[in-house]
Write a protein that binds this DNA or RNA. Structure first.
Length: 770
DNA sequence: ACTGAACGCTTTTTT
DNA sequence: AGCGTTCAGT
C-alpha cells in the first residue's frame, strides 16, 4: 500500500516482515519481536523511513527503557539521518522534561528535586517516625515497595484504603498520604511521580494535552511489555488525536511485574487501538540453533503465554554446558579459568564474554577470581559512582542550594563536616519547622527563635544557613563551578583528609571524578543548568554507565542484561532459591516471571552458553547447601552437557543420607520437543545424584565436620603488648603503642599504618594480633 | 549532648 | 559483608 519512497535500496536488506513494520507510518502498530529478531534495527529504520517521507523530527518521540538504549538509538538514527531533531529518551526523562516546564500545574517549583530511592526510603522512615504511625510490623522497605506499586497503578492513598479487608494496605495508606505531602512541601518528586504527575497534567489540562498530542504526532515505544499503568496512561493521553503509536515488545521477556509493569498493556494493545496492524518478527539473527532450542524449550513451560515459532538460519553450535561446582568460590574460579581458555585458545576477547547472575551479591566472588586470573572485567550495577558517600554529600549541597526546601538534602549535609549539631538539636529544629510550615533550612536561619536549642547549636545552624545562602547568591555559571564552589565553601577536601582515614585518597579521587563529570556535562549541554546536571545523574541507571568498548568481561544481573547480546554468556548460581528466587516461590505468576528472566539470560548468547550451580553457597556470610534450579529440569537433555567438577571431594555423610533415591535422575527432558531445531546428537551425562537434594535453609556449618573451625577463637588478652602488630576490620593494619589499665577493661592504643592512632577496649574490640 | 565504637539485622530484581 | 541502632565515654 505504501508507494516507493526516495531511497528504495534502503529496504532491500530487510525481510518482508521487517519491511512491513518499517513502512507502516500512520495508525497504531504492534510489533511482536522475539529475542534477537533485529527489533532495534527495525525501529531505527522506521524512524529514518518516516523522516524520508517528510515527517518532521520534532513530531517524533521514541521511548526506550534505559538511557543507554536511548543513546544507542539516537546514535543510529543520527547515522541514518543527521540532525533529525527526534526526541529519544526514557519515560522518566520525558516526565522530568515535561515537568520542568509544567511543574506549577501540580503545585511544584520548576526547580523541583528528584529523589532517588535511597532518599525516598529515608523520607518514608522519617514520616513513620515523626507521625508515630503504627505500621503493624511492616518494614519500611516493604512499605516503600507498596507505595511505589500503588503509584504506578495510579492508586491514591484513599483508594488504597478502599481495598477494605487488607490489613497491610490499612497500615500503609497513612504513610503514603503523609509521604506525598512531605514531597510536596519540599518541592520534591520520586521516580514514580515523574510519570504520575504527567498523567495528572494530561488529564486535568485538555488544551495542553491536545497540544502535546499534536506535537508528538508519532510515538515509538520499545520494551512495551514492561510498561506500567502510568506509562500506559501517558501514551493514551498523547495518542488520542494522532494515534500513530508504534509499540514493540515480547511478552516472553516481561520481567518487571514486580515494579508494576502490566503485561496486559501489550496483550490488549490490539483491542485498545482498533485498526491496529500487527507484525511478528520471529526470525532470530543472534543465537545458534542449539541455544534458541534450549531457550524455547524452557519458555514453553510457562502456562500464561502465547505460543510462537522461533526460527533461525544460524549454525547449530555446541551444546549448552552445565557445570556443577562444590561451592561458590570454585564456581568463580571455574568460570574465570573457562574465560581464560576462551580468550587464549578460541579467539574470543574478554569483551565478548558476559557473566550474569540473579542477585548483585554474587558478583563478589567472580570479581576476585577474575582479578587473580588477570582477566579484565567490569561490573554493571554495583554501587554506582554517584552512590558514593562523598559524591552524594557534594551533590546534596548542590541540591540544597538549588532547592532550599529540600529537607532530605538538608538532613544529609547539615552536620557534614561535623558542626556539632546532634540528633536532639535536629529533632527540635525539625519539629519547629514543621509547626511553622517552613523548610528546615529556613528554620536553621531563624534558629535563635527556637527555645529548645542550646547556644552552640544555634550558632552552628545559623552559620550553616548563611553558608548555603552565600553559595546560592553567586550566579551559578556551570555545573563544574557549582561543584567547586561547594567544595571550597564547606572545606570538604579538608574534611575528607581528617575523617576518612585510610580511604581519604580514594574519596578525594572520587571528588575529582565528580568535577570531571560536571565538566563533561557542561560541555555536552552548553545551555544546561545545575538542576539539569543533578537530574541527569539521578535518572542514570547502572547500565548507562557501562562502557561496552572497554575490552573487559561484563558482570551484571539478569535484569540489567535485557536488550544486550554477547558471543559468550555464563549464567552462574542457577540454583533453587536463587533462580527462581526464594521470594517468588509461593506465587506461580512470579515463578513464571523468573522463568522469563532465565529465558532472557539464555537468549543474550550468540555462540556459547555456560550455566552453573553449586552444592554449597555462602549467603550473607553463612555457608548454605544449594540445590540446582528446577528450571534445569526443563531444558532439553539432548542439547546440554553436564560437567561435574566436584569429584569425590563432596563426600559428606550428611549429604548422602539426605539424598533422594532416584539415582537415574538427570537434567532435562524430551517430553515435548519443539520441531524447528534438529537437536545435536544426544549426549548422556549422569547428573551427580546428590545434587538433587534441597536442604532448605540449614547452614552447612551445622553439618560440616570442621564446623568448630568456623567460629572465631577467643583472643588471649595477654597477647596484646606494646609493639605487637594487629589488624582491625575497619582500620586495617596497626601496631600497639601503649596499654592502659588492667583486667577486662584494659585498653590498647593502636597506631594504624593509615589513619592515625585509636584507643580500644581490648576485650571488646575486634582487634586481632598478627 | 555529641561522638565514636560495637552489635545485630538484613538484600531480589531498578527507572 | 554492609548499615542503623545502641551504648559508653568525653
Amino acid at each position: 500500500m505504501t508507494a516507493p519512497h526516495r531511497d528504495p535500496q534502503s529496504l532491500a536488506d530487510l525481510t518482508p516482515a521487517q519491511q512491513k513494520a518499517v513502512t507502516h507510518v500512520d495508525g497504531p502498530l504492534l510489533v511482536l519481536a522475539a529475542a534477537g529478531s533485529g527489533k532495534t534495527r527495525v525501529i531505527t529504520r522506521r524512524v529514518a523511513y518516516m523522516l524520508s517521507r517528510g515527517i518532521e523530527g520534532s513530531n517524533i518521540l521514541a521511548l526506550t527503557f534505559t538511557n543507554k538504549a536511548a543513546g544507542e538509538m539516537r546514535e543510529r538514527i543520527g547515522k541514518l539521518v543527521p540532525n533529525s531533531n527526534v526526541w529519544v529518551g526514557t519515560f522518566h526523562a520525558l516526565g522530568a522534561r515535561l515537568l520542568r516546564t509544567h511543574a506549577p500545574l501540580v503545585g511544584l517549583d520548576r526547580s523541583f528535586t528528584i529523589l532517588d530511592q535511597a532518599d525516598r526510603l529515608r523520607t518514608i522512615k522519617e514520616v513513620i517516625e515523626a507521625r508515630k504511625i503504627d505500621t503493624l510490623g511492616v518494614p519500611p522497605e516493604r512499605i516503600e515497595a507498596i507505595i511505589s506499586r500503588a503509584k504506578n497503578a495510579m492508586t491514591s492513598p484513599e483508594k488504597l484504603l478502599g481495598g477494605a479487608d487488607d490489613l497491610i494496605a490499612k497500615a500503609v495508606a497513612p504513610v503514603y498520604k503523609r509521604y506525598q505531602e512531605r514531597l510536596r512541601e519540599q518541592s520534591a518528586v520520586d521516580f514514580d511521580d515523574l510519570l504520575v504527575h504527567i498523567v495528572t497534567i494530561l488529564r486535568d489540562h485538555p488544551d495542553l494535552r491536545a497540544r502535546l498530542d499534536a506535537q508528538y504526532k508519532y510515538i515509538l515505544v520499545d520494551e512495551y511489555q514492561d510498561t506500567n499503568m502510568a506509562q500506559y496512561a501517558i501514551l493514551r493521553g498523547l495518542s488520542r488525536d494522532h494515534p500513530n503509536l508504534c509499540v514493540t515488545g515480547d511478552p516472553d521477556q516481561a520481567i518487571y511485574a514486580w515494579r508494576g509493569a502490566n503485561l496486559n498493556n501489550i496483550l490488549e494493545f490490539e483491542n485498545d487501538y482498533p485498526g491496529c496492524k500487527v507484525v511478528k518478527l520471529e526470525q532470530n539473527y543472534r543465537s545458534t540453533k542449539t541455544i534458541l532450542y534450549v531457550a524455547d524449550y524452557l519458555i514453553q513451560h510457562n502456562t500464561q503465554r502465547k505460543p510462537k515459532d522461533l526460527v533461525t538460519d544460524n549454525a547449530h553450535g555446541e551444546p549448552v554446558e552445565i557445570s556443577v561446582y562444590l561451592d561458590d568460590h570454585e564456581e568463580a574460579r571455574g568460570v574465570a579459568s573457562r574465560i581464560v581458555d576462551l580468550t587464549r585458545h578460541d579467539g574470543f576477547s574478554p569483551r565478548d564474554v558476559a557473566v550474569f547472575c540473579r542477585v548483585t551479591a554474587l558478583t563478589r566472588n567472580l570479581e576476585q577470581a577474575l582479578r587473580s586470573a588477570s582477566v579484565p572485567y567490569q561490573v554493571v550495577g554495583t554501587v554506582s559512582f554517584f552512590d558514593r558517600q562523598e559524591v552524594k554529600d557534594v551533590l546534596a549541597y548542590l541540591s540544597l542550594v538549588i532547592n532550599p526546601r529540600n529537607d532530605v538534602a538538608f538532613d544529609r549535609v547539615v552536620n557534614v563536616p561535623q558542626r556539632g549539631i546532634g540528633k536532639t538539636s535536629l529533632d527540635h529544629l525539625a519539629e519547629w519547622a514543621r509547626r511553622k510550615g517552613i523548610p528546615r533550612l529556613a528554620a536553621a536561619a531563624r534558629a535563635r527563635e527556637i527555645p529548645e536549642l542550646k547556644p552552640k547549636a544555634i550558632d552552628a545552624l545559623v552559620d550553616f544557613a548563611a553558608g548555603i545562602d552565600r553559595i546560592a547568591k553567586h550566579p551559578t555559571a556551570s555545573a563544574k563551578d557549582g561543584v567547586e564552589r561547594v567544595l571550597r565553601a564547606v572545606g570538604y577536601r579538608e574534611y575528607l583528609k581528617l575523617s576518612a582515614l585510610s580511604k581519604a585518597d580514594d574519596r578525594n579521587a572520587n571528588v575529582d571524578e565528580l568535577i570531571t563529570a560536571a565538566a563533561e556535562f557542561d560541555s555536552a549541554n552548553r545551555d544546561g543548568s545545575i538542576a539539569g546536571f543533578l537530574e541527569q545523574i539521578t535518572l542514570m541507571t547502572s547500565v548507562d554507565r557501562w562502557a561496552d568498548d572497554s575490552g573487559a568481561v561484563t558482570l551484571m544481573t539478569l535484569h540489567a542484561a535485557k536488550g544486550l547480546e554477547f558471543p559468550v554468556v555464563f549464567i552462574v548460581g542457577v540454583e533453587n532459591q536463587l533462580l527462581p528466587h526464594s521470594r517468588s516461590q509461593d506465587h506461580p505468576d512470579q515463578v513464571e516471571e523468573e522463568r522469563r528472566l532465565f529465558f532472557v539470560g539464555i537468549t543474550r548468547a550468540r555462540q556459547k552458553l555456560f550455566l552453573s550451580h553449586c552444592a554449597n553457597r555462602v549467603v550473607k556470610g553463612r555457608s548454605m547447601y544449594a540445590s540446582p534450579s528446577p528450571f534445569l529440569d526443563e531444558l532439553p537433555a539432548d542439547a546440554i552437557v553436564v560437567r561435574d567438577t566436584t569429584g569425590g571431594r563432596r563426600a559428606s555423610s550428611q549429604w548422602d543420607s539426605h539424598s533422594h533415591s532416584n539415582t537415574d535422575w538427570r537434567y532435562g527432558n524430551n517430553q515435548n520437543r519443539s520441531s524447528y531445531a534438529p537437536p545435536p546428537p544426544p549426549q548422556r551425562y549422569e547428573k551427580p545424584r546428590s545434587s538433587s537434594v534441597n536442604f532448605g535453609l540449614k547452614t552447612a556449618a551445622e553439618h560440616a565436620a570442621g564446623a568448630s573451625a568456623a567460629s572465631s577463637p577467643p583472643v588471649d588478652l595477654d597477647r596484646f603488648q606494646p609493639g605487637v602488630s594487629v589488624r582491625h576490620p575497619t582500620y586495617g593494619l596497626g601496631r600497639i603503642v601503649a596499654i592502659e589499665g588492667a583486667g577486662p577493661n584494659r585498653k590498647g592504643r593502636v597506631a594504624f599504618v593509615v589513619g592515625g592512632e585509636r584507643t580500644f577496649v581490648l576485650a571488646k574490640s575486634p582487634l586481632k594480633p598478627i
